[in-house]
């Protein structure tokens, strides 16, 4: 579902800043990025592209039902 997992995070916060939808936050205790609000992910991959260690995996499915016009 949407942004899926983070592995090998160094806690640089690039993804947190680069996510337009405020999906990711830094966990204060572990100092690592956590996916806090996956329902708001627009699957744009900016976080992944800004991550210096390529830690983020994103899947193509949205985690909540989507509304479309037709189809």
């Amino acid at each position: 579902m949407t942004i899926n997992s983070i592995n090998g995070c160094i806690g640089c916060e690039e993804c947190v800043k680069s996510c337009p939808c405020d999906v990711i936050r830094l966990d204060k205790e572990t100092g690592k990025a956590v996916i806090l609000y996956p329902a708001d992910c627009q699957i744009c991959h900016l976080c992944r592209m800004y991550c210096p260690v390529d830690a983020i995996e994103i899947r193509p499915e949205k985690s909540i039902p989507v509304v479309v016009s037709w189809g």
Binding site: I43, H45, P60, E61, K62, V66, G71
Partner: peptide
């Protein structure tokens, strides 16, 4: 703009290599 029926919310892949 229209999208695709499979994974319609997947902007990144839906736009080919645009991003």
């Amino acid at each position: 703009h229209s999208g695709r029926s499979v994974n319609p919310a997947d902007c990144y892949n839906g736009w080919g290599d645009m991003f």
